[in-house]
Design a protein around this nucleic acid. Sequence first.
DNA 1: TATAATTTTGACAAAAATAGTCAACGGCAA
DNA 2: TTGCCGTTGACTATTTTTGTCAAAATTATA
Lengths: 103, 103
Amino acid sequence: MSTETIGEKLRQLREENNLPLRKVAALIDIDVAILSKMERGERKLTKEIVLKLANTYKYNVDELLVLFLSERIMYEIQDEALGEKALKVAERRVKYLKENKGK
Amino acid sequence: MSTETIGEKLRQLREENNLPLRKVAALIDIDVAILSKMERGERKLTKEIVLKLANTYKYNVDELLVLFLSERIMYEIQDEALGEKALKVAERRVKYLKENKGK
DNA sequence: TATAATTTTGACAAAAATAGTCAACGGCAA
DNA sequence: TTGCCGTTGACTATTTTTGTCAAAATTATA
């Protein structure tokens, strides 16, 4: 199972592409320090940045977005004993909303 | 299936207990306006407030907390096409963390 | 080694999001 | 009317997040 964080994944992709922070930061127009922190999980990523990086590395956008979103979700329930229950309830409610979309 | 929001649930509980906003707000030490907005979903609830209200109404804390958490989760993935996938991934990762807790 | 390139770190300021306070307003019933 | 209840919006304060920068640390290369 994949237990790596989105930050670790992004760093891996960057290294596979042999790109220094400096170049990637310039490409997506953010500060090097920020990108460094994002890769190490010290700063939160944004959806926009994830999209730009997926494009930069020509990597599957959906896979990265799912990783990104799942991490935001886990952040919400960190250390919560009822986290798993909440996840299941959220799933049911999302499904319900989908079935009745536009209504 | 329960599709009501935590705010609606809390309002329902307050009305069942025949308590005006004024009294509940005083009991849990917040402004009436805030409580009014929280019940109507105009302001976000906090875990602390949910706990206090569960105690005030003598209602199942876990049920309210699950509702509260699931709503925060859903807020994170609102309008995201990949929301359900992200939920499933989050679930798997949470389970994984639980199995390997303390490691 | 030493020199350059890369990455990390922390301090600081700017901006945005959130939270709290308060008074006025509208609805409703005694 | 008067009183009680709930809602609304404006305003301020506080907290959190974000961006910028330079110095320090690390790593790679000549």
